[in-house]
């Protein structure tokens, strides 16, 4: 009886199964892009794009990005290469004497670049973020190729001494991110 029912309705059952597989694959594939778009839109609402924002120390009231570390200070910048006409300059100097890093994330959530305080020459970073195939006239800065037109630049600064939070917070504000213009160096 059950077999007869299955045989009679198999095209519909097969269509249901195929649709379920397509919806599943599409949702898994698109989820990271959706989460990044939502996160970037929320950050950009406050600071716009190609501008850095220095967040407060994370607490239980921090609800923007999951699993924040309460031991780090986060500074974020949404890079938008179209809005910047091709290049965004990311830089930091005179950063605090503690662990810090600058990391770049594409619109698919991939961390495609990271540099920390020990790798930064002279305790400073200064580079251009550009789209593939872009030529920046007169540029002498190192370049990093961005896989997607928009993404996130994230500075992490470790609070290694609770008694010096104010100094660490002040020093990490030497980090910046903005649309590149040839004479901005």
């Amino acid at each position: 009886m059950r077999m007869k029912l299955l045989l009679r309705h198999w095209p519909w059952l097969a269509a249901t199964l195929v649709l379920a597989i397509v919806v599943h694959a599409a949702s898994v594939y698109l989820l990271p892009r959706f989460v990044m778009m939502r996160t970037m839109a929320a950050i950009a609402r406050n600071t716009g794009v190609n501008a850095i924002s220095h967040g407060q120390r994370p607490s239980s009231r921090s609800r923007g990005v999951v699993r924040p570390s309460p031991d780090l200070l986060y500074s974020t910048c949404i890079y938008d290469l179209a809005a910047a006409h091709g290049a965004v300059r990311v830089h930091a100097k005179d950063m605090p004497a503690t662990y810090w890093s600058v990391s770049l994330f594409d619109a698919d959530t991939n961390n495609f670049y990271v540099m920390n305080d020990r790798q930064a020459k002279g305790g400073a970073v200064d580079f251009l973020l550009i789209a593939p195939g872009t030529f920046v006239d007169g540029n002498r800065l190192p370049v990093v190729i961005a896989p997607t037109e928009r993404g996130i630049v994230l500075f992490r600064t470790l609070i290694n001494d609770e008694t010096h939070i104010a100094q660490i917070d002040a020093a990490r504000r030497h980090a910046g991110c903005e649309a590149y213009v040839a004479d901005s160096r």
Partner: peptide, 26 residues
């Protein structure tokens, strides 16, 4: 985690449970 080598399932899980995770070198 945080890497292009991760595949779609890990990437989706990181987006939901660990967005902006650094790659293993860091």
């Amino acid at each position: 985690a945080g890497s292009r080598e991760g595949g779609p399932y890990l990437r989706a899980q990181i987006a939901m449970h660990g967005l902006l995770a650094l790659n293993r070198h860091e």
